[in-house]
Computed example of a mutant assay.
Amino acid sequence: MEQVRQARNVAVFIFEQVEPLDFAGPFEVFIAGSNRGQDFKVYTVAEKDAPIQAVGGLSINPAYTIANCPKPDILVIPGGWGSRQEMNNETITSWVREVSNDAEIILSVCTGALIAAKSKLLDGLKVTTNRLAIHELRDLVPASTEIVEEARYVDNGKIVLSAGVSAGMDAALYVVGKLLGEDRARKAANIMEYDWRRD
């Protein structure tokens, strides 16, 4: 008899001046790929229990704070202008580091890579980010880290990083396929009527 696996917790971190599609794109992908909530439980998490103002003035109410959120199996770290401030927020980088110890996958989108770098998760890995922020990432990582400038996403096993904005959806679909099979990822892309780019 097949054992039923508990749904994986997917924590989507949000912060002031987060890029909307950086977090909402992967959020939608994991919902679409969840088999009606059976395989992924997707939620937002922020440092504090207060509305977040994303880029463009979009207001989001986080479901949880870093102090009370369910233990993430997958952590999505989006980018946006606010990542430059959050990467210097020791409370956040410590939390990301702590979560990464037990998480199955950390998915960085766009300049979320800056937060991942300052959380000391990228040493010796292949990494990417939004092409307009490659120079910022280069300044943060050690020489052992290889920056891949033209990739939509790169997979280091536990740590997956994507380029800018819509590339986060491609990377999230890749993660769905990695965990649940490519058919599930293709089905999620079809549900969203999204043209999945795998390169």
Rank of each mutant, 00 (worst) to 15 (best):
V127C: 11
R36V: 07
P20I: 09
Q38K: 13
Y43Q: 08
G177T: 12
T145W: 06
R186M: 12
V109W: 04
A163P: 01
Y194R: 03
N61P: 00
G112D: 09
G112T: 10
E150C: 01
A63K: 15
L173N: 08
V42P: 00
A50F: 00
I106V: 14
I52D: 07
L179P: 05
L179A: 01
C69N: 11
T128D: 07
Q38V: 00
G181I: 04
R198A: 05
A133K: 02
R84I: 02
R5T: 14
D73R: 01
R5S: 15
V165Y: 06
S34T: 07
E149I: 03
T145P: 06
E150G: 11
V99Q: 13
I106E: 03
A54E: 10
A171S: 08
Y153H: 08
V18C: 05
L121I: 11
P26D: 09
G25H: 05
A172L: 06
G168E: 02
R36N: 15
V4T: 14
V45C: 11
A103T: 06
M192K: 12
A189C: 07
D183L: 10
G56M: 03
N156K: 13
Y174A: 05
K158S: 05
T128W: 05
M169Q: 13
V160M: 06
A171Q: 11
G80Q: 11
M87E: 15
M192W: 06
G164C: 02
E149W: 03
A113C: 07
E16D: 14
V141R: 00
G82K: 04
V160S: 08
A7Y: 05
Y153V: 02
G157D: 11
L173F: 08
S119E: 08
D73Q: 01
E150Y: 05
I106S: 09
M1T: 09
S108I: 04
V45I: 12
R198D: 05
A103I: 00
L21V: 15
V42Y: 02
F40S: 01
G57S: 11
W81Y: 14
A133Y: 02
V160G: 00
S94N: 14
I105M: 08
L140P: 00
W196H: 06
E19A: 09
I115T: 11
N9K: 14
